[in-house]
Design a protein around this nucleic acid. Structure first.
Lengths: 246, 246
DNA sequence: CGAAATTTTGAACCGTTTCAACGGACGTGG
DNA sequence: CCACGTCCGTTGAAACGGTTCAAAATTTCG
C-alpha cells in the first residue's frame, strides 16, 4: 500500500477550468485522473466528498462497514491493523494520491488515521462502483494502483520476515527518500512526520530498537539527524548496502 | 496473495461445450470466467497458453522481464523473494484460480515455483492488456482479485511483524484449513504440501522453530500429526485462541 | 535394505525486547 | 522570558524468544 505510483500522481491531473470537486483543490480525489478525459473527470468530481482530518483523526476504522473509498489528497495517513491485545502493525504510510479501501470485503480490515493534518476525498462505494463500470480507464488505473500496492506489500513482507533491525531502518529511510524525491523534494533531507512508535510499528520493531538503530546509523556516518523528525542521508550508497537488498 | 477468492474460483466456470482453451482442462486460465459471457470466454481462451510444471519447476523468475500473466489451474505454487545473501521470504502459496504477475513493472519482483506438480495458464501481457480494455468485466474481476490479495498481504504483514511463533503457526494452519474447506475438503485434516523450510520462509521463522512449535501444538492437544505432511486439527477453537486474532 | 534428505530434538548463543531511568523538546502559565 | 510539567526520544542492563550449531530420529526413495 505504500509508495505512490508516479503515473497516477496528482501532479498529472489536467487543469480543467472550473472543476473543483472537493471545494478546495482541483485535484482532490482525482489522483487517477491522468487516465481520464474531461467528461470522466467531471463525473468523478460529482461523486467526490471532501474530507478534512485533524491530526490523529480517523479516516476509517477496522471493523466498520466498508461504505467508502478514500483518496488521500494531502498530508500523511497511517494504515494499521490491531491484534485484540493491542499489538499494532502499520501496513503502510499513505501520501497524496494514494488510495484507501480497495482491499476490503464487507468491513474495513484496517484503520486509517491522519498523521498531522490531512485532507482526502471520499466516494461512496456504490456510486464509485457504478462509475467504474462506465469508465474502464478509471478501472484500469485502479488495477494498476492495486498491483503497485501489492508489490509494495510484498517488499514489506520481505522486510518484516527476513531483515535485521538495521536493514529495516535503512530500507525505510531509503524508501521515504525515494518517495520524497518523486514529489519534488531532493531526497537528501528526509522528513519524518511520524513518531518513533509509528516507525516501530511499521518496521515490526520496538521504539527502543528504532532509536538505538537510528543512533547506530548516525554513529556509522550514514546519516545525521538535523532534528528528531528529520534525517539527512549522508552516504546513500552506504545506506543502500546496509539495507540488505542489492 | 494467498487464499483464493471464492467468487472467482474455477468451480464457478460455466461449462461451455467445446471450449478447451488449454488442451487439458476447460477451466484452465479462466478462473475469472465467472464474470464473463461466452464470447469473452472464447476470446480469453484464445490467448491462453497451457503450462505443465514439474515439481520444483519455475513458473517465473525474479528479475526476468515481465512478459506474462499466469493463472494457476492446479497444484500449489510458492511465490518468493530473495535477498542477495540468500535469505528467502515466501510471500504466498497459490492454488488453483490464483493469479500471478499482477504486481509487476518491467521485471518480475518475485519468483514463482511449483510445489509438487502444477499446471497453469499463461497469457502474454500485451494480449491480455488489449483484452482487458475490451472486457471490463474481466478487468473488474482482476481488480477484485488484486484487492483480495492486497488484504491477504496486509494480514500477513501483521503476522510477520507482530505475532509470536505459536501465533504464526496457528494462524497458518487455520488459513490452510479454511482454504481447503473452500475447495470442498473438510478442513479438519489439513494437507501440507510444502516442506518445513517453506513454512519457515513463509512465516519468517527457521525450520527448527517451525518444527518445535508444531511439536508444542501437538503436545498441547490442539493438533495431531497423522504424517509429517499433514495436520489434523483437534481443537480448532483452541487453535484460534492461540492464533492471536480474535 | 541402505543412502540421502527431511524432520525432530538438544544446548549454547545472540539480537531484540523488556524494564527502568535519564535527557531534551515543547507548550503553558507565571 | 524563564520555570515547570508533559511528552517523546535516548540510553542502559537484564531477560527472553528465536536462531544457530550439532546430532539423532524418521521418512523417502532408489
Amino acid at each position: 500500500m505504500p509508495a505512490s505510483s508516479p503515473v497516477l500522481s496528482v501532479a498529472h491531473c489536467p487543469d480543467i477550468e472550473g472543476l473543483n470537486p472537493c471545494g478546495q483543490c482541483k485535484a482532490r480525489g482525482l489522483s487517477v485522473c491522468g487516465s481520464l478525459k474531461e467528461e470522466g473527470l467531471r463525473r468523478l468530481a460529482a461523486l467526490a466528498e471532501p474530507l478534512d482530518v485533524a491530526a490523529g483523526g480517523v479516516l476509517l476504522r477496522e471493523g466498520d462497514p466498508a461504505t467508502h473509498l478514500i483518496n488521500v489528497t494531502s498530508g500523511m495517513v497511517r494504515v494499521s491493523k490491531l491484534l485484540p491485545d493491542g499489538r499494532r502493525q502499520i501496513v503502510g504510510f499513505l501520501m497524496a494520491g494514494d488510495f484507501l479501501g480497495l482491499a476490503s470485503g464487507e468491513t474495513y480490515a484496517f484503520t486509517a488515521e491522519a498523521i498531522g493534518e490531512a485532507t482526502a476525498c471520499r466516494f461512496r462505494r456504490a456510486g464509485y462502483r457504478a462509475l467504474l463500470a462506465e469508465l474502464p480507464e478509471l478501472e484500469a488505473a485502479l488495477l494498476e494502483r492495486a498491483s503497485h500496492d501489492l508489490q509494495a506489500a510484498q517488499d514489506h513482507m520481505l522486510l518484516l520476515g527476513r531483515k535485521t533491525a538495521i536493514e529495516r531502518l535503512a530500507s525505510f529511510l531509503l524508501d521515504l527518500s525515494g518517495r520524497a524525491a518523486r514529489t519534488g523534494d531532493d531526497g537528501v533531507v528526509v522528513d519524518l512526520p511520524m513518531s518513533r512508535a509509528e516507525i516501530a510499528d511499521y518496521l515490526g520493531l520496538t521504539i527502543e530498537t528504532v532509536s538505538r538503530t537510528m543512533s547506530r546509523l548516525k554513529a556509522g556516518g550514514a546519516i545525521t539527524l538535523p532534528s528528531q523528525r528529520a534525517v539527512r542521508i549522508e552516504q546513500s550508497e552506504r545506506l543502500r548496502a546496509l539495507s540488505g537488498d542489492a
